[in-house]
């Protein structure tokens, strides 16, 4: 540990807040927007969500059909790889467990998945990080429909990983036989992105 001469730090919030922050993160009261490019605006009547494995479609839902699936609320802290964290964010949507069930599957067909989004963004995930109520396709934030700038109409929500894994404007979940990097992951960001292990960049253990 290298002590930085003269650095004391502002230490905003109490000790309890600081214990809730993964290493290297700081708390923000705002909800910043971070995207690699322009915001995507998808009309609901053109929207669909597809679950696929190789060439076969396991499930496909229009917006209306998707809205009719069982709804779940998740309240969670979120952590962005650019270092801000936000506590107690409240989301509503369809868990990946319910999505698999709606497609008539008892279990995911493989251990890996690549999420594809409007705008060409992709992110890779372990199925283990998505099931058992750990992740959802979120359509609401604080009871309001998700704004396009925050990923609306629907985004992935995987709150226990860095937030770039919670891909905005998600449209297709493709199961894969092996893990392969998505968009940020091929730009030097970590393949899994666990904030508590500070897995920010490729090469972090």
């Amino acid at each position: 540990m290298l002590v930085t001469r003269g650095f004391k730090g502002k230490r905003r919030g109490g000790d309890a807040d600081r214990l809730r922050l993964p290493p290297g993160q700081f708390l923000t009261p705002e909800f910043p927007v971070l995207t690699a490019g322009p915001t995507q605006h998808t009309k609901l009547n053109n929207w669909s969500l597809v679950l696929q494995h190789g060439g076969s479609i396991l499930g496909k839902w229009s917006w209306e059909q998707f809205e009719a699936l069982p709804q779940t609320e998740i309240t969670s802290d979120i952590h962005c790889v650019t270092k801000w964290s936000k506590f107690d964010t409240r989301w509503r949507g369809v868990t990946i467990d319910d999505l698999l069930r709606a497609a008539g599957l008892d279990a995911a067909p493989t251990d890996f998945l690549l999420a594809h989004c409007d705008g060409g963004y992709t992110t890779n995930l372990l199925v283990a990080d998505l099931i058992e109520a750990r992740a959802m396709i979120a359509t609401h934030f604080d009871d309001l429909p998700l704004l396009p700038s925050h990923g609306g109409p629907a985004r992935l929500l995987v709150p226990h990983l860095y937030f770039c894994k919670s891909a905005k404007w998600v449209r297709r979940l493709a199961f894969r036989d092996a893990d392969s990097p998505g968009f940020w992951e091929s730009q030097g960001y970590h393949l899994r992105g666990d904030p508590w292990r500070e897995q920010r960049y490729e090469g972090d253990q």
């Binding site: 690699a36 490019g37 962005c80 801000w84 705008g119 060409g120």
Partner: peptide, 13 residues
């Protein structure tokens, strides 16, 4: 083309 437009925001702070 949206894919030609690269953006960077300096975050909340």
């Amino acid at each position: 083309r949206a894919s030609n437009v690269r953006t960077e925001r300096f975050g909340p702070t």
